[in-house]
Amino acid sequence: MQIKTITCHDVNNYGASLQAYALQCFLQRNGYEVEIIDYLPIYKSDRLNFFEYNRTSGKLFTILKYVPFLKPLVGLYDHLKVPGHITDYKFIGRKKPFNLFKRNHLKCSNLTYRTLEDLQKNLPLADVYIAGSDQIWNSVGFNGRDSSYYCAFAPKNTKCISYAASFGASYIPQDQSEFVSKQLSRFYAISTRERSGVEIVEKLGYNATEVLDPVFLLDKDDWERLCSDEHKKEKYILVYDLDMNHPGVKQLCLGLAKKNNWKIYSINDFRECPYADYNINNAGPIEFIEWIRDAQYVVCTSFHGTAFSIFFHKQFYTFPLYHGKNHARMVDFLHKMNLDNHFVKEQIELSNLKAIDFEIVDKLLAYYRQNSKQWLLTKLKDLADSHE
């Protein structure tokens, strides 16, 4: 049976790349022919591609049809006029390892699609379509307002399921309820990454099951095999604060560093960490795993930073994005792992830190992992049987 998945897979984001790989790998191991639809909508165009021109309409678009050699300059202007993008040049080194990861580890469609119309005109044929994980249904942003991520391109006689799709937040905007409800109606089976996602789906009148993020369809050894055998020798705290502005993250990192005589290393996405001893601006998905693997301690505002800390049995604390509201996925996951006290909203004193008993966590993870695998494989077997 041929499966095609659609997800956020090529956006220079660690979790997005790794979850896409994990779902692909798990399905392949279970005998399915799998391909990721290379869907890269304009609004997700690579922010590190300084010379890409993304407009598809307007007077300037029309003019540039006749003078296409000016497109790179206009693209650069469009890029630099966005607040904060002027500092993106610091992170240009991330492009190469992300591109290599896609090329070497993701099996993507030959065609790249930018719009729903592109998908409909050159339909990527499959027996089953899977709307994958990550925040593909986050309707606070663009993803959840894009019907492509709800498999709107799929022919009516082709079944669609979702695996660990995420709404990103614990709610959807009121003005999007009708749209989301209509999109969900085409799914044969729905699973979400968070309990809050199940509740959203049920409020819209559908059934849903909570499953683990795709990275947990693989195990530690699978991820270890991607990594280099060389380990970092210096002892460090790894901080992964997406916005670099959470005072609780800073307080904990500085306190741990002083107490243990550890360095602070920061792995960065959009800005550098002002209090880090070393800023890592050029890491790709594999390097992201390696930096977590070799850390003494991890402090993050990231779901996948949390996930890989658990894989490699790293003591960690997870914070929400400062003033952010999209932390349901971290809260729900840590609750399942009996690690509620390792999610801190504001600050935590060193005297209140609790060591994680990973023997307990591993047992809980094994239970939820088995349930997640069984849900996905059962739904696919049901669909395969219906084709016979």
Rank of each mutant, 00 (worst) to 15 (best):
L254G: 03
L254T: 11
G255S: 11
G255E: 04
L256R: 09
L256C: 08
A257K: 05
A257G: 10
K258L: 14
K259S: 14
K259V: 03
K259N: 13
K259P: 00
K259E: 15
N260Q: 11
N260Y: 02
N260S: 10
N261P: 00
N261T: 03
W262F: 12
I264W: 00
Y265A: 15
Y265Q: 12
S266N: 11
S266R: 09
S266H: 01
I267C: 09
I267E: 05
I267N: 08
I267Q: 11
N268M: 11
N268A: 12
N268C: 15
D269R: 08
D269N: 12
F270N: 09
R271E: 09
R271V: 06
E272F: 03
E272W: 04
C273L: 10
C273N: 07
P274G: 06
P274V: 06
P274D: 09
P274T: 03
Y275S: 15
Y275L: 15
A276C: 07
A276E: 04
A276D: 03
D277T: 12
D277H: 04
D277K: 07
Y278W: 09
N279C: 11
I280H: 02
I280Y: 04
I280G: 04
N281V: 15
N281A: 14
N281L: 15
N281D: 10
N282H: 06
N282M: 10
N282A: 13
A283E: 05
A283N: 04
A283S: 11
G284C: 08
G284I: 01
G284H: 03
G284W: 01
G284M: 05
P285C: 15
I286Q: 02
I286G: 01
E287T: 12
E287F: 02
E287H: 01
F288E: 05
F288P: 02
F288I: 11
E290N: 13
E290M: 11
E290H: 04
W291Q: 08
I292H: 01
I292A: 10
R293D: 01
R293F: 00
R293I: 07
D294T: 09
D294N: 07
D294I: 09
A295R: 02
A295K: 02
Q296Y: 02
Q296D: 12
Q296K: 13
Q296T: 03
Q296F: 07
Y297A: 08
Y297I: 11
Y297D: 09
V298D: 04
V298I: 14
V299Y: 01
V299P: 00
C300L: 07
C300D: 07
C300Y: 00
C300R: 02
T301D: 06
S302E: 03
F303M: 14
H304R: 11
H304N: 12
H304P: 02
G305P: 00
G305E: 06
T306C: 09
A307W: 02
A307F: 04
A307G: 04
F308V: 13
F308Q: 06
S309P: 02
S309W: 00
S309Q: 08
S309V: 05
S309I: 04
I310L: 10
